[in-house]
């Protein structure tokens, strides 16, 4: 059988193909990653961190990272664990084994969402077309992450650099999110009349 021929299709592949990319708010599709949702009570949280190799933040709305791995706080008993370039089945099995003695939940959600990045000085402004949060560095510093909404879509938003945000979006919503941001940044294709309101 043609086992090796089934390739993963990214939900943003089609929609990202034709986008013009103004540098003041450029969009990019992020590579596929293994993604697990870990949920559990305190004793198991430490074990999960050890098994994953990254601290699971105890502070609300923060992510921690080590190399290609990130742990996002999503709720007081919920973390999204992300490992770029890793096979999710392997990661799942390895962690499940080390958590076997704990009462907790580990679920593979690698295909649930795809991720994109927005980069540039107008990132905050473009994201605020639909995201109601205060995205200034004071209110949303580097290292912050949160579930929120963008227009009519739920997203997980995180700030990795001063002018860089990552968005993790459920597959069926991701083209909408891309198109909404693409529409919002259209004004920067027109440099003469573009303005910097913030």
């Amino acid at each position: 059988m043609a086992e090796a021929t089934i390739v993963r299709v990214n939900s943003l592949a089609a929609v990202s193909r034709d986008s013009a990319n103004p540098p003041r708010a450029s969009l990019a599709v992020l590579p596929d990653a293994a993604k697990l949702v870990f949920r559990g009570r305190p004793p198991s949280v430490g074990a999960a961190a050890e098994a994953f190799g990254v601290e699971l933040p105890q502070t609300a709305n923060r992510f921690s990272e080590a190399g290609p791995r990130k742990a996002y706080w999503l709720g007081p008993d919920e973390w999204l664990l992300e490992a770029i370039g890793q096979d999710s089945s392997e990661l799942f099995s390895a962690m499940a084994e080390r958590l076997a003695s704990h009462s907790c939940s580990l679920v593979d959600v690698s295909h649930r969402s795809d991720s994109m990045e927005i980069r540039g000085p107008m990132s905050e402004y473009v994201l605020n077309h639909g995201c109601p949060l205060d995205l200034s560095e004071r209110a949303f510093p580097i290292g912050m992450c949160t579930r929120t909404i963008l227009g009519k879509s739920p997203i997980i938003l995180s700030r990795t650099e001063r002018e860089v945000f990552h968005l993790d979006v459920w597959r069926s919503f991701s083209p909408y999110v891309w198109l909404l941001l693409d529409d919002a940044r259209r004004e920067f294709l027109d440099d003469e009349s573009a303005r910097s309101p913030t």
Binding site: V37, R39, G40, R41, D77, E78, S103, C104, S105, V107, D108, V109, S110, H111, R112, S113, W170, R171, S172
Partner: peptide, 12 residues
């Protein structure tokens, strides 16, 4: 209860 929920609608 020791039980946790995760949406997998779009995983599968």
């Amino acid at each position: 209860l020791d039980v946790w929920l995760t949406s997998t609608t779009e995983q599968w």
